[in-house]
Design a protein around this nucleic acid. Structure first.
Lengths: 218, 218
DNA sequence: GACTTTGGTTACTCGGGCGTAACCTTACGC
DNA sequence: GCGTAAGGTTACGCCCGAGTAACCAAAGTC
């Protein structure tokens, strides 16, 4: 009977840092599928292969756990985008790289995306977190637009800029949703499409102009 | 004591149709503030000025109640848009009127908007309803684009069209959110901005072109 | 003026799920 | 080798909220 100790060497007793990531993985998965309220701590714990009190011990209450998810996924996404869109590039190049990185992220982390944008909206405790992230995004985009405009000697009111940035971000999020719902779709291609819609705009598109990525896909 | 009967002539005993609307009003309000799960039937009933069993008697379970909200608000919105954008108008005119009607609706029914787009997304039981509505919208927009393109002798793949329509719808929804969060903002002006972003596109905007509404605001 | 339908209420049941108390056990420091 | 902390568990308390049973009263109806 004492031999049972080594009979199942399924490595239990993992260090905290590892378990925390497993829990966050499980939480993101369950939250994305069920939504915040419908998700149960029991299911998350089970999915993480651990018992519930451990989740409470490491990540705290359900709300705190959700916020932790939000932070991890949000940071990952922001870093992916910021890392791709170096600020010293020309505007269209930056936009293109940013979009590529963004759609790449969504394609690779569909659950994270769902948590971030489909669940967090709505429930008050998290609306703030989400809004802040979104605001940063909008700010960056607005900054890019402003920069490009000034380069051409033009200038536009702040609100105007913000609204256009909002529209762009919204359009991009919408396509991200589309991508998340079409597993067969190609993130790269989606990014190209968004670039067309954003940079040239519907009006230009109607006249037959087409923006092409600087590095043609292999 | 018996005199109490007429002591408070606060008109109770209203006909069913009236009460149902009051209940739906309350439900939309509470759902939009709390979200589906966090909203309680008790609060909805109280807000409607009626007791809970009446809500069950008239509108059924919580899910059915939510779907009823979705239907009422969705129908209202669709009718507002469809009524404004007659199909025999030129494309840009249709788009403009549709946008005007849409932002007008959101401005006037901020709660309804919140229920429709901020709450319904996420929870599975309603994702279908919402997706269907959205799909109808996307279809309409795609149809408009296709029409305009063919008029200029051009043609574009179906997926391409759908994606652009998605982006447009997404951008519009995003601005609707912005409008819902900025009570001081003017729906009309927001619609004009969206029209600029959509019809002329960022590229055109950068070159200084500006689309102006056919009827200048008073 | 009795009979029924419609509008309305109070007061419960009952289940699910968050959060915890109490307890076990493997590793590591010394 | 032994204390102690870190990793882990089972089993429960408890509250909240969906849904209901049972009952009441004002309006129509004939």
């Amino acid at each position: 009977m004492l031999a049972r100790v080594s009979s199942t060497p399924t490595f239990k007793r993992l260090p905290r840092a590892v378990r925390e990531q497993q829990m966050l993985d499980a939480a993101v998965k369950v939250f994305s599928r069920r939504g915040f309220h419908a998700a149960s701590m029991d299911e998350i714990a089970e999915d993480a292969g651990i018992s519930k009190p451990m989740v409470y011990a490491y990540l705290g209450t359900k709300e705190e756990l959700f916020v932790a998810c939000l932070h991890r996924e949000g940071t990952r996404m922001m870093e992916a985008i910021a890392g791709a869109a170096a600020p010293d590039l020309p505007a269209d190049e930056r936009l293109w790289r940013g979009l590529r990185a963004f759609f790449g992220f969504v394609g690779a982390h569909r659950d994270g995306w769902a948590v971030l944008y489909r669940q967090a909206r709505g429930s008050q405790p998290f609306a703030g977190e989400l809004a802040a992230m979104r605001a940063r995004l909008v700010e960056v985009v607005a900054g890019m637009l402003d920069h490009a405009l000034r380069a051409e000697g033009r200038e536009v009111g702040e609100t105007e800029l913000e609204v256009v940035a909002y529209a762009l971000v919204g359009a991009t999020e919408s396509l991200a949703d589309w991508l998340a719902d079409h597993p067969e779709a190609d993130p790269e291609k989606t990014a190209t499409r968004m670039m067309n819609a954003a940079w040239l705009g519907a009006g230009q598109l109607l006249r037959g102009a087409t923006w092409r990525p600087p590095t043609p896909p292999a």
